[in-house]
Write a protein that binds this DNA or RNA. Sequence first.
DNA 1: CATAATCCTATAAAATCTATGGGATTAAAA
DNA 2: TTTTAATCCCATAGATTTTATAGGATTATG
Lengths: 136, 136
Amino acid sequence: MISKKTKYGLKALIHVARLGYQERVHIAAIAEKESIPRKFLESIMLELRKAGYLASRKGKGGGYYLLKKPDKISISEIYRLLEGPIAPVPCVSLNFYEKCEDCDDEAKCTIHLLMVQVRDRILSIYNNTFISDLIN
Amino acid sequence: MISKKTKYGLKALIHVARLGYQERVHIAAIAEKESIPRKFLESIMLELRKAGYLASRKGKGGGYYLLKKPDKISISEIYRLLEGPIAPVPCVSLNFYEKCEDCDDEAKCTIHLLMVQVRDRILSIYNNTFISDLIN
DNA sequence: CATAATCCTATAAAATCTATGGGATTAAAA
DNA sequence: TTTTAATCCCATAGATTTTATAGGATTATG
């Protein structure tokens, strides 16, 4: 199960991506329309901005807008940023690999191959789906 | 990411399934060989027994053995028992459905279809993999 | 009756998730 | 220059879930 943070982040990003070129939107507006707690969304938006997906203007008339093109933002990237590993176990993670304490030899692990398969199936979707695919 | 509980449970179940017909094994032995905390494993084994996958004998010479045939135990079942929903979000779960608070109309939700796809990919693996497939 | 195993309930410790508060900063408009 | 309205930033609180652990009850064997 993905966290609410990731779900909120994806929905907010899609929301911004639906706007016109460099059109701005307030956090408060997104929060209301997407039913996301305002302050929680604020921290998520900040993270998306710092990672280069969004840009913002402060002050009156300010707001957020999309910095990266929606067809260049894969779900994988956002998932990894907000959620962490896509893999079902750390020992098959491509970007967040960690050795299992309970496993001497991964090749002999009874569930290792299964986990690899699951990882690859999920990745094949998230790698090939972009924010642009979710706008409509 | 799956919990350690689910990982431990799967590995323990496979461990028991590798034994001969109605051969018994102690929790302590599994715990040691699979590097699982003994008391934690105890509670997991109890859950697997209550769900009908394992049987046990108390007292001296006791232990656990497989009750259900390994080719009749899908990973889906065990996952749902120990972990809960397989779906990435509650609103696309087949067995643990819950409506999202932030979503009036699922048909209009921007990430709903994506989540359905992920669910189906994972399910297609877990539904079609059985404990018997993981013995070797 | 001693021993060795599971059974059962409670609970504690740690980690993670889900926010919330409050003020600092910035920019535009009045 | 002042007011207003937005993001920025840090701290932390509350809730939930995960990961165990403790300790005794129960049961079966020899």
